[in-house]
Amino acid sequence: MENLLVILLVMMIVAAIMAIHAKDLLSSLIAQGFVGYGLVICFILLRAPDLAIVQIVVETVTLIIMVSVLHDSTRKEIQVPAGKRDIYTYSLSFVLVGLMLYYFNRAIATLNPFGDHALRMSDFYAREAVELSGSTNLIKGVLWDFRALDTFGEATILFAAAAGVMAILRIKGRKE
């Protein structure tokens, strides 16, 4: 199973690079859709059916919105010859990537190896959630009983995002 995940992840990385370097924005969107649907298969392999259902719907709606944005604007990628400033940005980004890779390698040593997760606090959740909350779906037990205030905060962020979209897209001002 681990080998399958490695193969999927390598394919997702290749698709991500294709999405960033594509000449046409529509093919870029399709490559991004490949990354998103690959993530669905990863979630199924990692025993997370809830996440797989959400991701498959969310990815579809994202692609619909992105295509509808591209539909009445341009889909050509900007073609400019590389100047002096591009050399700075590329070298800066590669230095940053290398630096973060180094620190990640140091941080990864503190994690347990894959599949050997220490259930410290979650062990309580996994054992007691059914009895305490009455929900046989343990994720919902955690989400709406033990950590309901966090979930309410996230619902507030959703509200703020919708209010932001409606404020940005208003053409006419308020009538006096």
Partner: peptide
């Protein structure tokens, strides 16, 4: 806040889980 104060009921049935 967000106390699940209703009784959990029989787990696995449709009417269970308190306020969830």
């Amino acid at each position: 806040f967000f106390n699940n104060y209703l009784s959990p009921g029989a787990p696995g049935t449709l009417i269970s889980g308190g306020l969830i």
